[in-house]
Design a binder for these strands. Structure first.
Length: 313
DNA sequence: ATCCAGGAGCAAT
DNA sequence: ATTGCTCATGGA
């Protein structure tokens, strides 16, 4: 366990004796897009989780979750922050690898968040060939237009599939998400159709074609093996290898996923001399080397690569 | 101006 | 199964 005790206070929840958690490492390793830094040293963030505004602040050995209750923690935040997992043994195993030892030292406070699958799906569809500030802006715009108002300060929850399905492609295009508008529109329709067919299947048997569409239900995807889940996710429009890996790792608990983007390509080349290899080959190399810990290895390497701005000639 | 960003779809091979 | 081109958008 990476914390000792929970203490309820008037305006939040305090975790004491917290290990392996640094807000900057958790929120700026490219896995989540709805957290804003409130201080200079990256110990205090404000974000939106499960339709509620939350502040996270590191105070020495404590982690203070403002606006959270013990019920919020038991119901979702514990899982969201991956507090069911002890990171010390995991980091020790990865640090056997001399290259990762350096990366783990740099991003010692990283944890892999378990986020909402639909929000993660749409967020990473938006991420393709896009910059992080622009991704954040797009998610904010989508939430403000289609999500529920959740505070008096203009905070909006990410829309449910039902809510986002009311968006037209033209409206989405107008939010500045570029050519990804049709992907977001299409993938949302696929999610809604899968949900509809799942209910329908309780009343009657589905045709083969309907079965295939129903298989895209996000709750069903979580039950699949890593490779089956990987293949299935890529049936969503706008979802290829990279986005599928991100959705698996950041929302479906598949720790063996190994998202490979331009930064990972640089990092794998820098550390493991895989230059010239195609993206699928680099993914294979990562999974071969790190197995079920591939996702963690990837996050430490990604954070290190961006932090050090490593360049390959 | 050209290049790049947590890439994917599509056609051609 | 793999490679090359194209796809909006804004910042460097």
């Amino acid at each position: 366990m990476d914390y000792k005790a929970l203490i309820e206070e008037k305006d939040g929840l305090r975790l004491t004796g917290v290990k392996n958690f640094h807000p900057r490492h958790v929120f700026e390793c490219g896995q989540a897009f709805r957290w804003d830094r409130l201080d200079d040293d990256g110990e205090h963030y404000r974000g939106i989780v499960a339709g509620k505004v939350l502040e996270v602040k590191r105070e020495g050995e404590d982690l203070f979750l403002r606006h959270a209750t013990r019920e919020d923690f038991d119901q979702g935040l514990r899982r969201y922050f991956d507090f069911g997992r002890a990171y010390t043994p995991l980091k020790k195993r990865l640090a056997q690898d001399p290259c990762l030892k350096e990366a783990v030292k740099e991003g010692w406070g990283i944890r892999i968040l378990q986020q909402d699958p639909f929000e993660t799906l749409i967020s990473f569809i938006l991420s393709s060939n896009n910059g992080i500030p622009k991704i954040r802006q797009g998610i904010r715009a989508i939430s403000a237009r289609y999500g529920r108002l959740i505070s008096g300060e203009g905070d909006y929850a990410f829309p449910t599939p039902e809510e986002l399905s009311r968006a037209t492609m033209e409206e989405l295009y107008g939010l500045g998400v570029g050519y990804r508008a049709k992907y977001i529109h299409g993938a949302t329709a696929q999610v809604c159709e899968a949900q509809r067919l799942k209910k329908e299947s309780q009343k009657r048997s589905l045709t083969a074609e309907e079965e295939e569409a129903a298989a895209l239900d996000l709750e069903e995807l979580e039950k699949l093996s890593t490779e089956e889940c990987y293949e299935r996710l890529q049936k969503f429009v706008g979802v290829g290898p990279k986005v599928a890996d991100c959705v698996m790792l950041f929302s479906l608990g598949k720790t063996g996923a190994f998202p490979v983007d331009v930064w990972m390509k640089k990092a794998m080349d820098y550390f493991y001399q895989v230059e010239g290899k195609s993206l699928p080959r680099i993914r294979e190399a990562g999974q071969e080397r790190f197995g079920t810990l591939a996702g963690f290895a990837q996050q430490y390497l990604f954070f290190y690569a961006r932090e050090k701005k490593i360049r390959i000639e």
